[in-house]
């Protein structure tokens, strides 16, 4: 029964009480951990959406100077795609009960994620050393802020990944590790998606957000 359907129930009616008496379990067919992660991802989505809105709003005000191009971001994007793919590999392996594959997938996922973070720091430095760098330019401020927040989320994910990897290292069976791997993989794919949206809209140098705003009639 959908959640909207449930809201229509009249709990005081005897016929409804007979149905309700047999209600068992949660509202969704999900483990609490999976639902918890989804709720958290909803919160993070709001966070980044607000940042994109703020970016867009600022673009429309006064003189707007876009962020200078940092080509390293393309390489970083590839690293994050590789990290996410490795996590997917770990998940496939967990489903096939291949503990070695889980091990390799998690380690590779972690390695590429750390490489991505290193790449982002290098991108900061590149930007910093560019001629015309001016911290008061809001576009540059947004670049630092948004990449830092995205990086912090990935860093938090690395803590969870570290815990899952430790479980595998200690010789846990695949079954108890599987949930951790599933959660980490979902989180990784999500952060990749967020990065692709942020990179595509704000930092790829194509003025994608400006075009989107024009399409929506806001520019």
């Amino acid at each position: 029964m959908s959640i909207f359907h449930q809201l229509l129930a009249k709990p005081w009616v005897t016929a409804q009480a007979r149905i309700d008496d047999f209600h068992v379990g949660g509202t969704f067919f999900l483990s609490p951990a999976k639902l918890g992660l989804r709720v958290f991802l909803a919160v993070v989505t709001v966070l980044f959406t607000l940042l994109i809105f703020a970016y867009g709003m600022r673009m429309e005000l006064e003189v707007w100077r876009p962020t200078p191009q940092v080509s390293l971001l393309w390489l970083n994007t590839v690293l994050l795609v590789l990290s996410s793919s490795a996590m997917q590999w770990a998940l496939f392996s967990a489903r096939r009960h291949e503990i070695d594959g889980v091990w390799i997938g998690l380690l590779a996922g972690g390695f590429f994620a750390i490489a991505f973070l290193g790449g982002q720091i290098m991108a900061w430095r590149q930007l910093d050393s560019l001629v015309g760098f001016n911290i008061t330019n809001p576009a540059i401020g947004f670049f630092f802020l948004i990449t830092a927040l995205h990086g912090l989320h990935l860093l938090g994910g690395l803590v969870a990944l570290g815990r899952a990897t430790t479980k595998v290292w200690r010789g846990f069976d695949v079954a108890p590790v599987r949930l951790s791997v599933e959660l980490c993989t979902t989180y990784w794919h999500y952060l990749l998606l967020v990065w692709l949206v942020l990179f595509g809209l704000l930092f790829s140098g194509n003025d994608s957000l400006g075009i989107l705003l024009s399409i929506c009639g806001l520019r």
């Binding site: 959640i3 809201l7 009249k10 309700d20 209600h23 509202t27 609490p32 639902l35």
Partner: peptide, 12 residues
């Protein structure tokens, strides 16, 4: 959402 006991529907 997920930890309600038996018989505890949302509308109860």
């Amino acid at each position: 959402l997920q930890a309600r006991t038996r018989g505890m529907t949302l509308m109860r």
